[in-house]
């Protein structure tokens, strides 16, 4: 999971960096913001590379924080303030905490953990490079002539983002939330089927009784839900089930 996320980040970082290069009409007319953007991009890129190459699991997660934070700064420099804070809120504040929680819950040795290394590094590298190249190519091609005016009205303020999200992009937005809901339901179904009939009966009894839902629903969002949801049998009541959906909606809103 870490690997995949980090690869995504690498791709992200390179894309954003290159976007600027394309944006900056005169390549050698750097303003302060552009220099800062490039520097932060480099830091983000470096952090992302360290994330996938370090042999210490928790360090990888912490470097991921740096990479995601760097991305947030990049958004900020592009005047997309809302997206930047949502990035921090969702990714740094929640996803990485969830990741660290999962790591600590399973195993988080201090020092190197050679067994965490994957045997097919080359394949992973190939996939990562392919994905990065494809993304960079698509993005550069699509936004080559786009010019963000940093001095004028912010192009990424909450107003603008909300308006465009709920006017032009409302259909994909809702489709995404349905997709997430489907994923959520799927996770619940999967975790229910894993139990035996007896466990199911017991869970039913519990539901009829106190309806104890402790420790249940926070395993659901993002990535491997089966490991981090230890006893999901009692099923989140409608409200908690709805809650992660809302959060994921936020998460998806800024992709």
């Amino acid at each position: 999971m870490t690997l995949a996320a980090a690869v995504g980040t690498v791709a992200h970082a390179t894309t954003t960096t290159l976007t600027t290069a394309a944006e900056a009409r005169g390549f050698l007319s750097p303003t302060g913001v552009e220099i800062a953007f490039l520097l932060v991009g480099l830091v983000t890129f470096g952090a992302a590379v360290v994330t996938v190459t370090t042999r210490q699991l928790v360090h990888a997660a912490l470097w991921l924080v740096v990479a995601l934070g760097g991305l947030a700064v990049e958004y900020l420099l592009l005047t997309a303030e809302f997206i930047a804070w949502v990035q921090v809120l969702i990714y740094v504040g929640s996803v990485v905490v969830l990741l660290l929680f999962g790591l600590m819950l399973t195993r988080a040795p201090i020092g190197r953990s050679p067994d965490a290394d994957s045997g097919n590094r080359r394949v992973a590298l190939a996939v990562a490079v392919t994905a990065a190249v494809a993304l960079v190519w698509v993005v550069v091609d699509a936004f080559r002539t786009t010019w963000i005016d940093l001095d004028g009205t912010p192009a990424g303020s909450t107003d603008v983002t909300g308006a465009s999200l709920f006017q032009h992009w409302v259909l994909p937005f809702e489709a995404l939330s349905v997709l997430l809901l489907a994923a959520l339901v799927g996770a619940i179904v999967l975790s229910r089927r894993a139990n035996t009939a007896a466990a199911a009966r017991e869970a039913e009894a519990r539901e009829r009784g106190a309806g104890a839902t402790h420790g249940t629903p926070h395993g659901t969002p993002h990535g491997a839900p089966a490991e981090s949801a230890p006893e999901p049998a009692s099923g989140p009541s409608p409200e908690p089930a709805r809650a992660p959906t809302a959060r994921r909606r936020d998460a998806e809103g800024n992709r």
Binding site: E81, F82, V88, L89, V92, G93, V97, L100, I110
Partner: peptide
């Protein structure tokens, strides 16, 4: 003055917990 002040505040407060996590693990 921040355009998305609420989000900024809540996001940054959430980051503070990372310190406890790092301390706990390290």
């Amino acid at each position: 003055v921040l355009d998305a002040g609420v989000f900024f505040v809540l996001a940054v407060m959430g980051v503070g917990v990372l310190g406890s996590l790092m301390a706990g693990w390290a």
